[in-house]
Amino acid sequence: MPHFDAAYNLARWLTRSAEDADDMVQESYLRAFTFFDGFRGGDARWWLFSIVRNTCYTWLRKNGAQELMEFDEAQHSPASNALNPEDLQLRRADRETLREALEKLPAEFREVLVLREIEDLAYKEIAEVTGLPLGTVMSRLSRARRRLQELLAVPAGQES
């Protein structure tokens, strides 16, 4: 199956549940199959990603995921600006710590991080998958990393 692991990975991160990821992937592939005529060329991976993403978002909304942003971005950014990088130390994050931290982020942040860091997509490609303007991709990724860093950071001196 083409791009199956990548599709699964995205769904798994967006739903945060193995069981739900299964459903999302199955539904996405059936949609891809059904709407294949809607595919207008280009790289099939982005197209498939966008289907997985839309399927997951529909599911997230239906399941009342309050974590979905529309999330007050203004409210969250200045606070984190107050953090001086000097005072922070990135904990030597093991895999589980990272996974937990990433799962705590809102879906929109997880999404851009997964696409960028795990799937290694360029900004332009992320924009294509998510339908977001390039500038939004950039700022969202930046905020996502800052949040992740805050979650992983411990004040200097407190590190064991």
Partner: peptide, 27 residues
Amino acid sequence: DRAALRTAIGAGSLRYRAPDTLKKSVQ
């Protein structure tokens, strides 16, 4: 810090692999 974060994520093998049973059932 940002570079360290990237490295950590990159090395963290955070990718989930699709179960074989799922592949079969989707097929």
